[in-house]
Nucleic acid binder design. Structure first.
Lengths: 160, 160
DNA sequence: GCGCTTTCCATTGACGCCCATGAAATCCCA
DNA sequence: TGGGATTTCATGGGCGTCAATGGAAAGCGC
């Protein structure tokens, strides 16, 4: 598997370490830059994270802009300036800097959420709320799109 | 990693020395001209800095302009004329000349901000404000960019 | 000699590396 | 197919190393 899938909640220990879910580590190993590329989500109290693929994507975005343009510097500031390369120790744990923890409101536990080519880290309670909202949105959307078909309220195609 | 990433705030000591963040030093070491190439940002109260790659890029930019044109002279003056090569001592510290500190309003602390191929130095408070603006701008920008692609919620318009 | 700059050394706290433990999942074999 | 043995994972803690910072010592010009 080369995608981040499913959700896991792990504990932050007294030294500030958290285990990265084993399955995520496997994905990162194939896509690595020797660590986790991580930055605050722009519009959610969460952290976006991924491997080299994610970095390449961001680089492409920035490279597209004219050199020495205001936009380029601003984009680079918002992306690279707020990012961190999180190292993973040999036991598969990482440490979240204060700045990142604060953005996500993370204190004692972290929920890792797979989103395919990247993943997010959430404060567990907040993620629960976020998920509930997201699922409601999907239900609404489906009503509009798939008025003809029916899965009714049934099987959850998502995670839980 | 061969890019300047993340942000660090370090202190200027009584002798005017500041530690260059270790991760930046690593990048510079691979890209070195034995020091830091540094000049006042053109449109921000900050300092732009980098290694050989940055110098090459600036050269290319200048060379692109018509020979003997006013633009070329002006750009060359604005960039090269105000630049400095900052040395790094064996403990990884450098010293900012008065002229540069003044341009950025730097007094007791310096925030080093990675922008990928180069980095900037800011007075911490000013950077905070600048960052808030940059993030907002990127949010707006993304709405524009993402509007054309996949129906709204699709993953990866940019990030998030 | 005196002030200023540059090199070297010392401190402290953070982080990486190593090993240990216990729980859960997996495997294996009767 | 069931149950014990083995492996994988998440978590805890001790310890050495390195980075950031402060201060002392040594070179240089006036």
């Amino acid at each position: 598997m080369d995608q981040f899938v499913s959700a896991f909640t792990n504990k932050i220990d007294t030294k500030g370490r958290v285990s990265v879910p084993a399955s995520f580590r496997t994905v990162l190993a194939k896509d690595t830059l020797d660590g986790i590329y991580c930055y605050p989500s722009l519009d959610a109290p969460a952290l976006d994270a991924g491997g080299k693929r994610l970095v390449d994507k961001i680089n492409a975005l920035v490279e597209d802009l004219a050199p020495y343009s205001d936009e380029k510097d601003q984009l680079a500031t918002a992306l690279f300036g707020t990012s961190e390369i999180l190292s993973i120790d040999q036991d598969g744990r990482t440490m979240l800097p204060e700045r990142l923890r604060e953005h996500a409101g993370i204190t004692t536990h972290v929920t890792f959420v797979g989103l395919g080519e990247k993943f997010q880290m959430w404060e567990p309670k907040r993620f629960e709320a976020h998920l509930a909202g997201a699922r409601q949105k999907v239900r609404d959307l489906r009503k509009l799109l798939g008025a003809g078909r029916r899965g009714s309220g049934g099987p959850e195609g998502a995670r839980e």
